[in-house]
Design a protein around this nucleic acid. Structure first.
Lengths: 346, 346
DNA sequence: CTGTTAGCGCGTTCAG
DNA sequence: CTGAACGCGCTAACAG
């Protein structure tokens, strides 16, 4: 296998191992003639330096540990892609640990103790592997303070946060406000909201954005327009039906994720309510299918790639002990498609 | 940082470094009293052995390199999850390299030279990192012979293949045959097919399965029932319209992916053709959205997780130089949902 | 059986 | 340009 080492090269080229090392790294001048001889042998034997040995001496591994709570969740691959882009540019490698939380503990994230052992062993393994820093990717934005201890090794959280560490999160409140502003600009006033579970951070923040818009644009505030769902398709369906049967139904609805928006479409269809003519819909997440529905739904695209990239940028800052200041939160972007129109004249 | 090493432990516990090592690894008997003393110091200092140093001596890294052509493609995360499950069970670590092919070279996979440099550098880096084997995950099943050279290091391909190496692929032909058999059992005879591009391996294999079923079940073979799409929604839409305007339209259609099946649904809707009453539809891939459509479409689920798991199992076999025999191809599984019904009596 | 000493793995790098 | 120490943990050989 890869048995050829620096000393074979040295022997075959009639030089010392030191010289070979200098040639490999350009660390010092070597007489061109000697260098050529060495280079030739290196190529002939297809020599490849052993990073393990290298790391031992240099105390640098150029490796970042990435802990993903679950890679099969829709937002994670794109975050990883952003991490990879940064890693490529800066010659860093990624050791990926997948906690597989969905399969192991279901949706019971609130019970941190159920998976602390997995997280801790992941961290421990990564520290043993001498990673230079860690990125922790949650499956759902929430507080994970106290979940793990990296013993001083830099860590950046994304898609979740702690009260002590750097974390990268998109601006949820702004996103929801932007969506509302867009609807208002289209002429809507009676705007309903279907939220996710209210014990979740994104729900709270998005509701803040909604409320802020209601205040700022002086929209009618009608508690009947506020519906609390559970992120699932069925809740979107049920709550939309409730909205449509109000004596004064809304002309638009902001739905906090695309999955519930599917329920909204279905409910509207059954009620003979045409989207967007009779009801405008804005979703959240830009799930792939949101572009395959009929009508294609207008939705907020999450800056996932950017979050991954920023996490790495932040992390490398911490590793080099530069002072890092928490950056601006990445922003969501509204994707205008077919599910929004001006309200009908009454 | 993690400066504490085995010798500090040894010093603080008044033993030699050898003893500490024995305690850590249970490699030899140590008097309980001594052991306790050592263990206590280890815990106090929160000592964690340096895997880098360990690997240098043992020449084992317990690390597998995974090269994914693109982690953002729908099938890849689930394959990685399967890899992780195996890795967890066997105490292996994963170094992930994401080639980011979509972003870098678009869909132009046939031009291998456009991305060979990325693949080669990925392999080279992984070899330097002393991985014990490599798994290469394609984005689309195809022949990648000659793309890379691992210089004898074991490699397993999945979701693509070469003419020399072990590869894990699901049984595409069987899947398509099974889908047909299911339709036949429901009473269908006039069954159309909308394929993907015909230069792709899955298209060919799936067509084989279709053809085999036509022969075996003695179905009417009508060339007008054979439509060649391009995997995109629009082609599914257009070709379905063509099918529906035939003088003798099919009662069922096998669509080679769920994306085109969305087009089928849309076309049917526009033609006043009710699914499944007037036309049964079977899709392929079990994309997440296939469960959100109306009707929810019956589709073939790909054994992605299993493919990842098998790849690892195969790879560890190769690493331990056991003879590995190419296993049975993992099978797809039909997910019965709402888009298939018996044909109407005429 | 328990504990110690010392050399090794593979490159890097300083003194010569 | 070379010799040799070094990083950190493992382990063979040896001692009590």
């Amino acid at each position: 296998m890869n048995k050829v080492g620096i000393k074979e090269i040295a022997a075959k080229a009639n030089v010392s191992t030191a010289t070979v090392s200098y040639v490999l790294n350009g660390t010092r001048n070597v007489r061109p003639k000697t260098r050529e001889r060495v280079v030739k042998v290196i190529e002939e034997l297809n020599y490849r330096p052993n990073d393990i040995a290298k790391s031992l001496k240099s105390r640098r591994t150029n490796t970042i540990g990435v802990i993903a709570e679950d890679v099969t969740v829709f937002n994670v691959p794109e975050i990883i892609d952003g991490i990879n882009e940064f890693a490529d540019k800066h010659d860093l490698h990624i050791i990926l640990t997948n906690l597989r939380l969905h399969r192991r503990v279901g949706h019971n994230y609130s019970n941190v103790d159920a998976y602390r052992k997995y997280a801790e062993s992941a961290v421990s393994d990564l520290l043993s592997k001498q990673v230079e820093g860690i990125i922790y990717i949650g499956v759902h934005p929430r507080d994970v303070t106290g979940l793990i201890n990296t013993y001083g090794k830099p860590i950046v959280y994304t898609y979740c946060y702690t009260d002590q560490n750097v974390s990268i999160q998109y601006n949820d409140e702004q996103a929801s406000f932007d969506a509302m502003q867009y609807l208002v600009k289209q002429g809507h006033k009676r705007i309903a909201i279907i939220s996710g579970l209210m014990d979740s951070t994104p729900s709270r923040l998005r509701f803040n954005g909604y409320y802020k818009a209601v205040t700022e644009f002086q929209l009618p505030f009608n508690p009947q327009y506020i519906k609390i769902g559970d992120w699932g398709l069925d809740s979107g369906y049920r709550l939309t039906k409730e909205l449509l049967t109000l004596s004064e139904p809304p002309t638009a609805v902001l739905v906090m994720n695309d999955v519930m928006a599917v329920g909204t479409l279905r409910a509207a269809d059954e009620c003979g309510c045409q989207i967007p003519r009779d009801l405008s819909v804005v979703g959240f997440d830009n799930r792939e299918f949101s572009d395959y529905l009929n009508p294609r739904i207008t939705t907020m695209d999450l800056p996932l790639h950017e979050m991954g990239y920023s996490s790495m940028s932040m992390l490398t800052g911490l590793i080099n002990e530069k002072e890092v200041k928490q950056e601006e939160q990445p922003l969501c972007r509204l994707l205008e498609r077919e599910s929004v129109a001006p309200p009908r004249q009454e």
